[in-house]
Design a protein around this nucleic acid. Structure first.
Lengths: 194, 194
DNA sequence: TGACCGACCGACCAGTTGGTCGGTAAGACG
DNA sequence: CGTCTTACCGACCAACTGGTCGGTCGGTCA
């Protein structure tokens, strides 16, 4: 792995845990085993480093979804695939799901066009998918965007609130904790399809 | 309104928009029309000011829910009330919903006991409510906590992702934007009750 | 009247911030 | 061999960080 990627990995961990403003260049440099100036040699500013972290994240999510979608046919299967793949992605890459939510919170006015455009395609495709599935009577009625907010929101929230929920309930959410996200996804699919 | 409350209001706005680390004491002081030292006179540290902001938020949410709940009888009506009241609260106090999500993200290890305990009661009550409603066959099957994650997650996400969604879709989510949250809540209720 | 009090300020503090600059050591290339 | 590039460092910078300090001001109370 290139040093560049190594730096991005370390930076991503820190941004995920503390947010953009909660992390200093020095902290990233130390985590990557570099001096301050060595870090700046690879990424000219903190913001650009952060943007690069986000870009990787977006590319991965887009790739994962579109890969999974190539094997699926028909609106119903496609939609189920999206839900399932976003769910497993959020589970396996829970840090990235958290980072995405952070970005959603920080981003209100300064929406980065380069970053928003791919997400825009993704969102529009998903909406069209819901509409198509509804037209064939495969998916329950309801405003498509509201349905999507419900899907993505439930998954993201399940991942983010998990530690807090667990702490409150004495460390255990379910009999089998590993099935937490699977339960969420299964539940979503069950209510989604007519 | 006391100066103290005034400061808390201004600080809350800033924390909501930029997060704890994204806001300096100086910025809060300016927003509150004070000098740096004047601010510290009211709240001894930045952290304590932040905690106080969170306490107000928690108290309000708890009060709003428990108020609404006094008029409701039976698990079904109670649960519907919780969903509706959390929805309207998130809509009217969207900043606070956002701040709560920020706290959920930042909080992973350092969960503040004083702040978690009331939320713990709220969560446990909600879970019992779901279980009771399920026992009477009023609410659809499914892991109660998964159902709650779905409810709260959808609502919070709908509020947080709203600006981004709107920007992507050219500013309009629905024909009538004001009904966005109402649509979400209605949709949730529809899938919630058996 | 005089003692005290909360609210507030300007000046200041040590430490940290994101970032610059000049330099150097290790290859790659001719 | 010499030249160029890439990777990196130590020293440094101005601006800012959260917070302290001594002091001023307008009340309030005895």
């Amino acid at each position: 792995m290139s040093k560049r990627d190594d730096i991005l990995d370390r930076a991503e961990e820190l941004f995920t845990e503390h947010g953009f403003h909660g992390v200093s260049l020095a902290a990233i440099a130390v985590a990557a085993g570099l001096g301050n100036a060595g870090l700046i040699h690879h990424f000219p500013t903190k913001r650009k480093l952060y943007r690069e972290v986000l870009r990787r994240l977006g590319d991965e999510l887009e790739g994962v979804v579109s890969d999974a979608l190539t094997g699926a046919t028909g609106p119903r299967e496609k939609l189920a695939t999206v839900v399932r793949v976003v769910g497993t992605w959020s589970l396996q890459r829970s840090g990235r799901a958290r980072l995405m939510m952070r970005e959603l919170l920080d981003n209100v006015d300064r929406v980065d066009k380069a970053r928003t455009l791919p997400l825009a395609r993704f969102l529009e495709n998903a909406r069209d998918l819901v509409t198509a599935a509804q037209a064939e009577g495969l998916v329950r009625d309801g405003e498509p965007l509201a349905i999507l907010a419900q899907l993505f929101g439930s998954i993201a929230y399940a991942q983010i609130a998990r530690p807090t929920f667990a702490k409150i309930l004495g460390g255990k959410l379910l009999a089998d904790d590993r099935r937490w996200m699977a339960t969420i996804v299964a539940d979503l699919e069950r209510t989604l399809f007519a």
